[in-house]
Each structure stands twice: as C-alpha cells, then as structure tokens.
Design a protein around this nucleic acid. Structure first.
Lengths: 199, 199
DNA sequence: CGGCTTGTTGGCGGCCTGTCAATAAGCTCG
DNA sequence: CGAGCTTATTGACAGGCCGCCAACAAGCCG
C-alpha cells in the first residue's frame, strides 16, 4: 500500500540485503519458487529488479538464502531436555519437535519439501543438511554418542516420518497433536530399542 | 544423433502422444521439471514445439501426465499376498513395496517428491492420490477393513517413512535392503499393534 | 489425379532472467 | 557551505522460454 514516491533512497548494504531477504522469505513462503518472480520481490520491496541480482546473484541463490533462513531453527532449549529414562527423553524430544514445527509451520514444513524446487543439487544439499541437524538432535536426545552411518541414516528416515506425520496434522488436519505425539513416540521407542540393535 | 531429414511425417494422434510422452517421461525423470524446456522435449522427439501444446496443453499439463505415468504402478500381485499371521503379512507388504520401489526407483522416488514442482495445487493432488494408493495397499494388506480418517492419515505418514527410508537405501546408499526391510517391518508392527489401538 | 481433412509447422507477442554502463544520493573535505 | 567523490541504485538491453494461431502439406477418398 505504501505508494512509491519516486524518490531514490540510499541504504546501508546490510539493511538493503535484510529488507529484500525478508520480502523474499514472505513471498516464497506463500507461493513457492516458480510462482514468485524477481519482479514481484523487487516491486514489493520498492526496489529495482537489478538490485536483487547485485546483492544475491541469481534467483536460485536468493532462494537458497531464503530456505536457509526458513530451515535454520533456533536450537534453543535443545540442551535443556531432561535426562530421565528413555521414554521420558523420547517424550521430550518429540514434544520439542512438534513445538518447533507448529510454531513456524508455514515456513519449515514448506521449505523441507523444497516448495517447488527439488532435484536441484544445491537446494537438495541445503535440505539434506537441515535433515541432518534434526537427525542429530534426535540421536543426542535419545542418548547416543557414537553413531554409525547406518544409524544416522535411520535417524534421517525417522525425520521423514516426523515431517510427513506433522503434515497430516498441520496441513491436512486429519490428526490431532496428541495422536501425532503418540505415534512418533512409540515408533521412535521401537526404532531405538529394536532396530538400532542390529548395529 | 539421428539427424532430422527435414521430411515432415504424419502420425496417428495416439502414436504421436505416446511418442512425445515417452520422451517427456525420460527427460523429466533425468533432470526434473525446471531443467527441461519444452524445446528440449520437442527437439529430442523430432517435433515442432507447438505440437506439444497442441496435444498436451501447457507444460504443466504435460508434467502432470508424466508424473501420473511415473506414479502409476502395476498393482500386480497385490491380491496375492499370503494370509498368514500379522508379522507374515507385514513382511509380505514391506517386501512388495521394496520390490516395486527398487524396480523403477529413478521414476517413483523422484516423482513422489515432485522433482521440482511441489507447492502447485494440481501436482500436489496427483502426488497425494499416489500416497493414498500406497496407504490403502498397506491398510488392506495388514488386514484392516473399516478405516477411520485418522488411521488413513497414519498410514499416509507410514508411507512417508517408507519413502524416506527407501531413499536412504537407493539414492544415498547408506542402508542395505535388509536394514530397510527390518526397520519398516518393526515400525509397521508397532504402529498396527500399539498406535492404531487408540482409535 | 484433384480435393479435402487434419496433423504439423514456424513465427509472433509476452514474460522472465542476468548483465552492465549510467545516474544520483549522501558523505567528506577544503 | 559547496564541490567532489564513492558507491548504492537504476533502467535498458539481450537471450531464453512459453502459449497461441494462422498457414502449410501429408496422406486419404472419390
């Protein structure tokens, strides 16, 4: 609604970057990669289109920074999980995960599936490292110190289950939070006690 | 390498459709949606670009038919699963799933993640119905007849676990088929016996 | 063999993207 | 306080892709 006055204003490079990036995060989060043109971002930011390329390079580079922002979750209180027995710790990590996902669901869930650009090597790598972070959080919360590559892969698989289940809850509304919590807790308990055993 | 002779040839509409579609399936499967232009498909099919729009409409319409082909799996031998006790049936359905996925892994796994176009309404719907089909197969194989919406959603979540685990096996090579089979069997057993109970 | 149906082509207009020389906003220094 | 200079910012240009449509011709039919 803020009609452009036509006056050209000069900002600090950091401020401009931040401003453009925030607009890009909002638009890409709402409509996905293909449905947002750099012209849209430039218009809503009140900026010439060329400035986006000047600060971020290509459109895909901008998108990479956007999903980096959306996937980077404050690892707050991750160290503050209780050290009780296994079911208690599992309850804690599952609850923490559901809190995080539900808080910025529209960003995290959308970005983890690469809202419109899976298959690209760099985008896939960014998503993969986010999955790694979540898998590491699960493994340490459960109490594993030395993890084999196979166990890490299984933890990544569990993150896949967690995201797909959370999607059924938050996007399709077919599950309640209690059901999701119960499902994820029981399956994680099974994986830890039975599946990881053969390593 | 087959240099175009310049002679214009006239085909039956069905034959042309089939030929163009097969080329599109191959290219989209290899490089994803964004990396393939209709010009590429037209060139490799030895056809004018406009003919693609004539037969399929827009590029996204073509892609919709492509992922429909990639996700449509011959439901062969799905009725031939044994009727033993629960662990036996679970073993059968998991083995069947792994067979299907490993056979056309490059298509199915790539398409189920919408190789480059998640977020679009119609594409998401096509993928969702494929997930529904797999979830129904799991539920019937396990022996459930009357399924509540919540149970169906949980089965969809389990399909998410299955695909992410299969990806760790087939694309990243960090798990063996035996490990995947064990993981998926035990988690499904847990879900059936413990999680579905609260319905 | 001539006409006719229709499968097929090629070009037009529009939108998007990356690049780059030109411009001017705002600070600095005399 | 004004001139000069650094550099943030702009606008236009070139290339590519997509949807559309009138014109063209391949092959059948009388």
């Amino acid at each position: 609604m803020s009609i452009d006055v036509g006056q050209r204003r000069r900002f600090s490079p950091d401020a401009r970057r931040e401003q453009i990036l925030s607009v890009a995060v909002r638009l890409f989060g709402e409509r996905g990669y293909a449905e947002v043109s750099t012209t849209d971002v430039a218009r809503e930011a009140g900026v010439a289109r060329g400035l986006i390329n000047h600060y971020f390079g290509t459109k895909k580079d901008l998108y990479l920074e956007v999903i980096h922002v959306m996937l980077t979750v404050p690892p707050v209180a991750l160290a503050s999980l209780p050290g009780g027995d296994l079911p208690t710790r599992i309850d804690a990590i599952v609850g923490w995960f559901l809190d995080v996902v539900s808080r910025h669901s529209q960003s995290w869930l959308a970005a983890i599936t690469a809202g419109g650009m899976a298959g690209d090597a760099e985008v896939d790598r960014a998503i993969s490292s986010a999955i790694d972070a979540a898998a590491d959080a699960v493994l340490t919360a459960v109490g594993f110190t030395a993890v084999t590559p196979a166990m890490h892969a299984m933890a990544r698989s569990y993150v896949g289950l967690a995201t797909s289940t959370a999607r059924e809850w938050l996007e399709r509304g077919l599950l309640t939070r209690a059901q999701v919590h119960r499902l994820l807790s029981l399956t994680l308990l099974t994986m830890v006690t039975s599946v990881f055993a053969d390593e």
